[in-house]
Simulated assay, not measured.
Amino acid sequence: MSGPLAGVRVVDLTSVVVGPICTRSLADQGAEVVKVEPPGGDLLRNLAQGSRNAGMSGKFIQFNRNKRSVCLDLKRLEGMAAMRRLVEGADVFVSNIRPSALARLGLDHEALAAVNPRLIHCSILAFGSGGRYAERPAYDPIIQSLSGVAATFERATGEPRFVPMVMTDHITGLIAAQCIGFALYRRERTGIGEAVEVPMFENMASFVMSEHMSAATFDPPVGPTGDNRILSPEYRPMATKDGYITVGPNTNAQAFGFFDAIGRPEMRDDPRFCSASARTTNAAAYFRLRMEALRERTTAEWLEVLSARDIPCAHYNTLEDLMEDPHLADRGFFQAEDHPSEGRLRRTAVPNHFGGGRREEELHAPRLGEHTREVLRQAGYEDSEVDRLIEAGAAQEAAC
């Protein structure tokens, strides 16, 4: 058995996070992903802190498993010719390069469809084409700022902040992988490839406003934007006698069970809390009630009491705690790996499973150009031709 994308060939001209997250998702499900890198390599190889060897940061390793690396200089004719050879035999081409730059390279959809009409050409963009921002450069914090992510923090805390992870890259990368799957399905029925455009800004604006359009959904609006429950300053882990806990009593059964657990059964009849809509309208008061009660016992005591009533609750994990979480240990989530150049590593497992099987061969995150010769040979190059490409500076392979 093998992964659902076994046999799908992907040429990956992406870097940093948003593109590699997309292609890692494809690779984890069995696709053959060839990561094409410039002579300096993916910026993430050296951008993130923490490494044993130059060019192999921990973050790069996490985002680039199950891929092979080919190093080509696309500014040289020979390098571009090799790239086009790879695309001719591919099912999918993915890039996160601005459209104008892609067109200058001759790697836009029209150019590549001429040599491979079955190709799924996916462009992950900062901003969708046709809008005034289309040619602007952007990274995750730019998109968080523009899309309203930072504004939700201002509404909740009085100060705009970024989510302390490259959330927009992760979300958009996974959406791009999803869109590629949709396009592959259509190609199976029609035999024809297509261009797919996945913009970060528009996807994140949709992500935020689907949640927070709220009463402004109606025209004219019947109230302000924003889910006041989620935007409440108290919407966060709450202090116990010895730490923190998160509780989520949302249904009437859960909320009334919570009132019983904290010794306040009379709150069932309080007009502020007697229904889900009332608790949403009075979210701040509902959260304050929780906060006052939860301070009275330890986290372990509350977990026992609340779990017995089937009330959603959880202890608070730090990043270090998460690496020791017993449920993740049961699932084998953090996996040990012996990397040929980086030594003993830990990486996250693929969390999703398919009954028809998973990827059979696990590949380590590649060194820059580690598979240049192997992949070009599979594309029809003789070893002598690869030697000439390397000597001309159009290709590069990893040092032994």
Rank of each mutant, 00 (worst) to 15 (best):
M1F: 03
M1P: 02
S2N: 11
G7I: 04
G7L: 04
S15L: 01
V16F: 05
I21P: 01
R24P: 03
V36Q: 07
V36S: 05
D42F: 02
R45E: 06
S51G: 10
N53P: 08
F60C: 15
Q62C: 05
F63P: 01
N64Y: 00
N66P: 06
K67T: 09
L74A: 01
A82F: 12
L86I: 04
V92Q: 07
N96G: 09
R98V: 04
S100I: 10
G106T: 09
H109C: 13
L112K: 08
A113Q: 11
V115C: 15
P117S: 08
R118L: 01
L119Y: 00
I120G: 04
C122L: 09
I124P: 04
G131Q: 04
I142N: 12
S145D: 03
T152V: 05
R161K: 13
R161L: 14
R161T: 06
F162S: 02
V163I: 14
M165L: 15
H170E: 13
A177G: 01
Y185Q: 08
Y185G: 03
E188D: 15
E194W: 07
V198D: 01
V198G: 01
M200V: 03
M213Q: 14
F218M: 10
P224A: 14
S232Q: 11
P233G: 07
Y235L: 02
T240N: 02
Y244W: 14
Y244K: 14
T246Y: 10
Q254E: 13
Q254S: 04
G257F: 14
I262T: 11
P265N: 10
P265S: 09
M267D: 11
R268I: 07
A276L: 05
R279H: 04
R279N: 02
R288I: 13
R288E: 14
L289D: 00
M291L: 11
E292I: 12
E292L: 08
L294T: 13
L294M: 15
E301Q: 09
S307V: 04
A308M: 08
A308G: 10
R309A: 07
H315I: 13
E320S: 12
M323F: 11
E324L: 15
D325W: 01
H327K: 11
L328R: 09
A329C: 05
H339V: 04
P340M: 12
P340F: 14
R346C: 02
R347E: 02
T348I: 13
T348S: 12
V350L: 04
H353F: 12
F354G: 02
E360V: 05
E361K: 06
E362R: 06
L363G: 10
P366H: 03
G369C: 04
H371W: 00
R373P: 02
R377Y: 05
A379C: 10
S384N: 15
E385I: 02
D387M: 06
R388A: 09
A392L: 13
C400N: 06
